[in-house]
């Protein structure tokens, strides 16, 4: 109940009040009713438990109906139980319980009194339907003309792929058409052609293969091998596997950083070098290990770093 209209300040004041009247509490007349604010799964269960112990319950909810977020979920963590199967019996029970009164479309305005005897002011918004007479048959819902406005897709932006790009990507996609589980291999092929995953190409792939763009991005950002930024001409992968770590891998990263002026994940301004770290390339016997494109360097020391980099500098 985020917009309950009841400020933190007021609650604090109320608490102070209660503390001051602590001694009075015992003398107060107690009321055999409770109010549960919020009709989500937690509120529903609380209401049921209270009502089962013989207390009259007012269940207040700001939305037009109870159920909360759980009614939108498919499965719940960690047991993977079906959300609706957990909720439905409680919904029915609450609806039927003679001691639970549901007050929907209502916000708490004010609370007064002390534990044992509160007076709550609710502000109830109109439903525009006679609640006494409505049976919930849904006939009006289905026939409301406003609800039935046809949804139209927003117009798509034009994809800006050059002819050359289009051709390259088409070839890749055609290799995998009509096969199962092809998204990752397609991304891998694009990555090896472009050395990164360009945004337009990803959008094109999503359209062509019929995946939601969100899923394409989810995979593209999950795997370490993919990059959404263009990489430099030489990709330096420095191993930070366990063997390389204990043999001084981190100091090589620093030495490279000093030499190139970049941190892992970055590219030099002239687009020549990109620095990345990997977790083991399977040459642990030669640790610490570094790879520049396809060339492997074993037993690297800080001292050797400038020399190795210069070799590539002169090549460019």
């Amino acid at each position: 109940m985020r917009n309950a209209g009841y400020s933190m300040e007021k609650i604090k004041k109320q608490r102070e009040n209660i503390m001051n009247h602590e001694s009075d509490i015992m003398n107060q007349k107690k009321v055999g009713a409770a109010m549960v604010v919020g009709g989500g799964i937690g509120g529903m269960q609380a209401a049921l438990d209270l009502a089962e112990s013989g207390i009259k319950v007012y269940l207040v909810e700001t939305k037009p109906c109870i159920g909360g977020v759980m009614s939108q979920l498919d499965k719940t963590f960690p047991t993977n139980d079906c959300a609706m199967c957990t909720m439905a019996p409680r919904l029915v029970e609450i609806g039927r319980h003679k001691d639970i009164e549901i007050i929907t479309l209502a916000d708490v305005e004010d609370i007064e009194g002390q534990p044992g005897n509160f007076t709550v002011t609710l502000k109830k918004r109109p439903r525009y339907v006679d609640e006494e007479k409505c049976t919930g048959c849904a006939l009006c819902v289905n026939n409301c003309p406003v609800r039935n406005i046809i949804y139209t897709e927003p117009e798509k932006e034009e994809l800006k792929l050059s002819d050359e790009d289009l051709q390259r990507v088409r070839v890749i996609i055609n290799n995998y058409k009509n096969k199962k589980g092809t998204l990752v291999p397609v991304l891998q092929d694009i990555s090896s052609q472009y050395r990164y995953l360009p945004a337009e190409v990803l959008r094109y792939v999503a359209d062509e293969l019929g995946y939601p763009l969100s899923q394409v991005y989810r995979l593209a950002t999950f795997y370490n091998a993919f990059s959404l930024e263009p990489r430099g001409k030489y990709l330096i992968s420095i191993c930070l596997g366990t063997a390389c770590h204990v043999k001084g891998g981190p100091s090589i990263v620093e030495a490279l950083g000093r030499e190139l002026g970049i941190k892992p994940g970055e590219t030099t301004e002239d687009m020549n070098f990109t620095l990345e770290t990997v977790r083991c390339i399977g040459c642990c016997g030669l640790s610490p290990v570094m790879k520049i494109n396809e060339d492997l360097y074993g037993k690297v020391t800080q001292k050797k770093v400038p020399g190795i980099i210069n070799e590539y500098r002169t090549k460019t």
């Binding site: 930070l240 596997g241 366990t242 063997a243 390389c244 770590h245 977790r279 083991c280 399977g282 040459c283 642990c284 016997g285």
Partner: peptide, 12 residues
């Protein structure tokens, strides 16, 4: 998939 960093028997 030999994920353990520092093991390379599967590769070998």
């Amino acid at each position: 998939d030999e994920g353990d960093p520092g093991a390379f028997m599967d590769r070998s």
